[in-house]
Amino acid sequence: MSSEQTPPDDQNVVTRRRLLLGVPLLGGAGICGVAFWKMLAGMQTGSFNPHDINAPVTGRPVPDFTLPDQTPGTGFATADLKALTRPVLINFFASWCIPCIAEMEALLTLQKQLPIWGVAYKDKPENAAGLLKHAGNPYARIGSDREGRVAIDWGVSGVPESFLIAPGGMIVWHSAAGLDSPEVRDSLKNALKAVGG
């Protein structure tokens, strides 16, 4: 039966039902559509990543750890970070990781403003040393996390990952993306300003 045949008295009922059906359905679909559009747009600019782990490390003191030396640097431990009087960037890297190698250039520039301490993650010492010899060494100190166990205490899920440590040993900023991205560098600069670096 088509709508033309509906008597006029029923017209209000029909309109009410149209709203009753249309508003939740189209509203729901519309909200989902907008959300997906925002997600896609955010993924394009890098501002949204649904697969970020967001390990809850910022605002916490550095975990307890001791890292042995990794040539050509010297290792470090929790106490070294707590004794700091100026901010330092901790960077987990590995010679087998292509994004880490891509990030080296940016790290070499950055170390002129901010000391960077490196952690070689699950890497053979000779391979890590070889990478730093080849690509340049941005690190003031370097520790070796051969088994990857210290990384777990830091909430690291892959390399590269970077942490900004404020004087006193507080983690104030964390990124699971490489510092070769300008967005990540900007966000680091803002965090650095906030701690007066």
Partner: peptide, 23 residues
């Protein structure tokens, strides 16, 4: 997303408009 919007949005609109007058 545009294709989905067209297909799903269009069909739901048609549904909301026409379904109440079905017997």
């Amino acid at each position: 997303l545009a294709l989905l919007g067209l297909v799903i949005g269009g069909s739901l609109t048609l549904f909301a408009w026409r379904a109440p007058s079905l017997t």
